[in-house]
Amino acid sequence: MTQLSLDAGTPVSISSRIRTLLKRWPVGSIAILIVLLVLGVFAPFLEPHNPDTPQIMKAHRPPVFLGGTWDYVLGTDDLGRDNLSRLISGARISLLVGFAVVLGAGSIGTVLALLAGYFGGIVDIIISRMTEVFVAVPFLLVAIAVVGAVGASTTNLVLTLIFMTWAGYARVLRAEVLRLRELEFVKLAKVAGCSNMRILFHHILPNIVNPLVILATLQLGATIVIEASLNFLGLGVPAPQATWGGMLAAGKNYIGFQDSLVIIPAIAIFLVVLSINLLGDWLRLRLDPRFRQL
């Protein structure tokens, strides 16, 4: 009996294994996002201090690496609130808004794309023109107008963002549905006696899941940036709730005096959005057949 041992004589060193792992998986992104998720989900238990209670006597303490104390690791802001706690609390808001918006806009966009791509004709014309209009609208202006009209709240922020981002999904996925619609398995499903709804949701929808996942991931990053921008402008989640954008806005008055107030939330936004985008790109390489190496 001979034994098959294909990799005998080629011991794989630990460092080269790690290198392959790093090449195959976006380890950095995933690690950062896991930290973000944990912080967001368990925020109330992880915050060392109450993020929203001002303590004027403790205002403007520097972070520990700039001569502060371990009691307030990232220092305190102008009202004496703990920066670390506010960062954690803000992570929760970013995640909540990000996921709610992606879920809402993704569902609306997907359903409209299915209808437009599959039925064609007048349905397609109406949905496609609507999509084009929404893609062309200057987003921030509309957001300012909407919040000005209905008032700033988390719900309004989410609804505005959904309202403004569904079109991106609809446009990309419609093209995919158009392609799938012409394939013969759809014709055969019709021949087999499937109803239109069954063809749409049972045969076509699973085939657009890959582009949908890629799109949703990239959109999550974009949503977090937009959410931060709106909060920066005071058009998002009302105070005193901590948000990364709000922290930036409050900190900008102290640039030169206490730079860490701006730099810390900026780094948080940067790292999270970068990680999400890298993950999205990696997903695209993995899932999009056009990039798949044969």
């Binding site: 394939l183 013969e184 014709k187």
Partner: peptide, 19 residues
Amino acid sequence: RGDQIAVVTQDPMTSLNPV
């Protein structure tokens, strides 16, 4: 359709749902 009249299509590459 599919019961009394059935169809065999041309392209075996796309006539089955890949998922």
